[in-house]
């Protein structure tokens, strides 16, 4: 193939990719016009959870660090947003920025320990971090309301003085922030720093040998992932207007990790679809099979492992991990 033809093909691919993304976003924007409040609030939950999954993918899929403590930063963001909502202002962007900062700071405080370990040890250390933060939420009653959670968060406002009560408007706000954060994550993974992350994942020793401070790279990614998880937490409470220790429980941490694996780690959009599937099975299907939700979830995991070896991202035919090497520097 000639260079010109290749450039043309690339341009075509980029245009089609952009058209595709635009169509998906337009469809998502149009949904509240056709759907009732329940499906829309379910979609809002899914979007918040999908952003959490995407942030974990940055850590797990792109940098090779599977974490079981990611719900901690999600929870820190959720509590921060709820506390600001109750005590300071219902203004959602303010809550979002505060949650982003709180998630990032929490990750910064705890991450330096975690990034020194690898593999299963990293998994377990992050689990410990997650459980300790969960315990804090449970026992710091004066701040967090303890096991009963924080009640009484007013509806969010985006423009001053106009509270968003209807599910559709809250959904549009959440969708807008989701798209924004997703685009930022995309930019990060496509940047030179993104390439460094993948290098650390694929061969940390080599990266260190060529002069990268890999611990520092991992720490930075950990903080970014924590900050985005915090932002996802603020989206979560924008919709539920209630936060309890269950929001940063081991269950959430495990579900989001599963979403990443089922969706296909290292693709960003795969984990988002994975998050949708996990929440749909967990929330919706379990109400049709009274009390047998865990059974369904378990079967879903087993099926996903065998049928989707590379997650949803694998169905698309792109070998995520391999591709990075083919098109490498």
């Amino acid at each position: 193939m000639t260079g010109a033809a290749r450039t043309a093909a690339r341009g075509l691919a980029a245009r089609r990719g952009a058209a595709f993304r635009l169509t998906v976003v337009l469809l998502l924007v149009a949904l509240p016009l056709f759907l009732g409040p329940y499906p829309i609030s379910a979609l809002s939950r899914i979007l918040a959870f999908a952003l959490l999954a995407a942030s974990l993918d940055l850590l797990t899929g792109y940098t090779g660090l599977a974490s079981l403590g990611h719900a901690a930063y999600f929870g820190v963001g959720a509590y921060t947003a709820a506390l600001i909502g109750i005590h300071l202002t219902p203004n959602a962007p303010v809550q979002l920025l505060a949650a982003l900062a709180a998630g990032g700071i929490a990750a910064g405080l705890t991450g330096w320990v975690a990034v020194r370990t690898h593999g299963t040890f990293f998994l377990m250390l992050t689990l410990a971090v997650g459980e300790i933060v969960h315990q804090l939420a449970d026992s710091w009653t004066s701040l967090t309301g303890g096991s009963n959670g924080l009640v009484g968060m007013p509806p969010i406002t985006v423009l001053p003085g106009r509270p968003l009560v209807l599910a559709g408007f809250v959904y549009w706000y959440i969708l807008a922030i989701f798209v924004l954060c997703y685009a930022v994550l995309r930019r990060i993974t496509a940047s030179p720093f993104g390439r460094t992350m993948r290098g650390v994942r694929d061969n940390e020793a080599r990266m260190r040998a060529v002069g990268y401070d890999t611990a520092r790279v991992k720490y930075v990614v950990y903080c970014i992932a924590g900050a985005v998880a915090g932002a996802a937490g603020s989206l979560w409470v924008a919709q539920t207007r209630f936060v309890s220790p269950a929001d940063l429980s081991f269950e959430i941490a495990a579900l989001v990790l599963l979403a990443v694996v089922i969706g296909g780690s290292g693709s960003l959009w795969g984990p988002c679809l994975g998050a949708a599937l996990v929440l749909l099975v967990n929330d919706t299907l379990s109400s049709y099979v009274a009390g047998r939700g865990p059974l369904l979830l378990g079967l879903a995991f087993v099926a996903a492992v065998y049928l989707l070896p590379r997650g949803f991202a694998g169905l698309r035919g792109v070998r995520v991990h391999v591709r990075t090497r083919e098109t490498g520097p």
Binding site: V24, L35, P39, S41, A42, A167, L280, T284
Partner: peptide, 22 residues
């Protein structure tokens, strides 16, 4: 894949009609 996914999600949740902005 994406359109099928969206369609499936819509069908699962769209059992009731109406609009979420009214």
């Amino acid at each position: 894949l994406a359109l099928a996914g969206l369609a499936a999600a819509t069908m699962t949740v769209a059992a009731c009609g109406g609009s979420a902005v009214r």
